[in-house]
């Protein structure tokens, strides 16, 4: 519940933060894309469909938050895909230690989340620029001029924020195990063999 409230708050406030603080600072290169950073940081926890919905909502909010005059749905599409990817890649990638899913130590989990977030941000920013170009929202000149700077800010910011978010203690409901995702029997087995995943 708290996670859901936090997510809603982030979805609503990220575009506001973007237009009121980051764009107001006049950073060299334009500053990071705050909405993208927030989405890739938050999307590693929920399941992929929920993450996609989160990304869609955040993108839609960024699309309509004034002052915005680009095509509605552009950021929603990109962020929806980005959030889905962020939720799916860690869940699907096997551990390097034993080749099994969920055989990862907490360190590996956080590093994986940060890496995924950086990669997704690195792909999503040019994708957004390309989409803006296709839809006629921006000119070649502006895209070529702005994208490198935004990329330079967004990718490290996404990595850092995702790493920090993955380090946060898990909510109690989630810490009880993986029963909802993989079945209760598997959860029990896991609890016996990998006690660190349960806070022990």
């Amino acid at each position: 519940m708290r996670a859901a409230l936090l997510t809603v708050a982030v979805v609503v406030l990220a575009p506001v933060f973007q237009v009121m603080v980051v764009n107001g600072l006049g950073l060299p290169g334009g500053g990071p894309d705050v909405v993208l950073v927030a989405v890739v940081a938050l999307a590693s926890r929920p399941r992929p469909p929920v993450a996609a919905l989160l990304g869609f909502a955040a993108g839609l909010a960024a699309d309509v938050a004034p002052p915005a005059d680009h095509t509605i749905g552009r950021t929603a599409l990109v962020l929806c895909l980005a959030a889905w990817a962020c939720a799916r890649i860690p869940a699907r990638s096997p551990s390097r230690l034993n080749g099994r899913l969920d055989g990862r130590s907490p360190e590996e989990t956080t590093r994986l989340a940060a890496g995924t977030a950086a990669a997704v941000a690195a792909v999503a920013t040019p994708l957004q620029a390309a989409l803006a170009l296709v839809l006629g929202d921006a000119s070649w000149d502006a895209v070529l001029h702005r994208t490198p700077g935004v990329l330079c800010w967004t990718v490290p910011a996404a990595a850092l924020v995702a790493y920090a978010a993955a380090r946060l203690p898990r909510a109690r409901g989630r810490r009880q195990g993986y029963g909802r995702r993989y079945g209760r029997g598997y959860d029990r087995t896991l609890r016996r063999h990998r006690p660190w995943r349960y806070g022990a």
Binding site: A52, G59, L60, I72, A76, L77, C80
Partner: peptide, 19 residues
């Protein structure tokens, strides 16, 4: 999950198209 993603992407595309 794929269905949900597809729906969301479709919704985004419809929005883009309409707008």
């Amino acid at each position: 999950a794929r269905l949900a993603l597809g729906l969301l992407v479709a919704a985004a595309l419809i929005l883009i198209t309409v707008d």
